[in-house]
């Protein structure tokens, strides 16, 4: 009973973070700021919702599998973002600065 409530709270919170991540990708002004929105709320939202799903039917083998997905995504997401950021930097994409000029 308590487990079910915790699971629903986790799912709802994770869902909120995922929506924030999606909004951030659309709202931020340049590529480098968008990577922030793409990594942090996204990873956090996935961790929370996956934990919620893992507790949804009680703890069993599926919970362990969901936990493995969480660990994989938590390591893989920052690495993928880093690879993209490095690629953008080496193709000379200028970051946006508040007091400076517009991004190209």
């Amino acid at each position: 009973m308590i487990l079910a409530i915790i699971s629903k709270v986790l799912l709802a919170a994770g869902c909120g973070f995922l929506i924030v991540g999606s909004l951030g990708v659309n709202r931020f002004p340049d590529f480098y700021s968008r990577t922030h929105a793409a990594t942090k709320p996204d990873t956090m939202g996935l961790i929370l919702s996956m934990l919620g799903l893992a507790l949804y039917d009680g703890i069993n083998l599926n919970s362990a599998k969901l936990l493995l997905i969480v660990i994989f995504v938590a390591i893989g997401n920052p690495a993928a973002t880093h690879a993209l950021g490095w690629a953008a930097l080496s193709s000379r994409l200028m970051p946006w600065f508040r007091k400076g000029r517009e991004p190209r």
Binding site: F28, P29, P95, R98
Partner: peptide, 26 residues
């Protein structure tokens, strides 16, 4: 994980504030 949670609240605040007070720095 604690740090990630804090980071998320900070980024979520930046995303949701209408004025979006970001000031990027390298």
């Amino acid at each position: 994980f604690g740090q990630i949670a804090l980071a998320n609240l900070a980024v979520a605040r930046l995303v949701l504030l209408p004025s979006m007070p970001i000031d990027p720095v390298l």
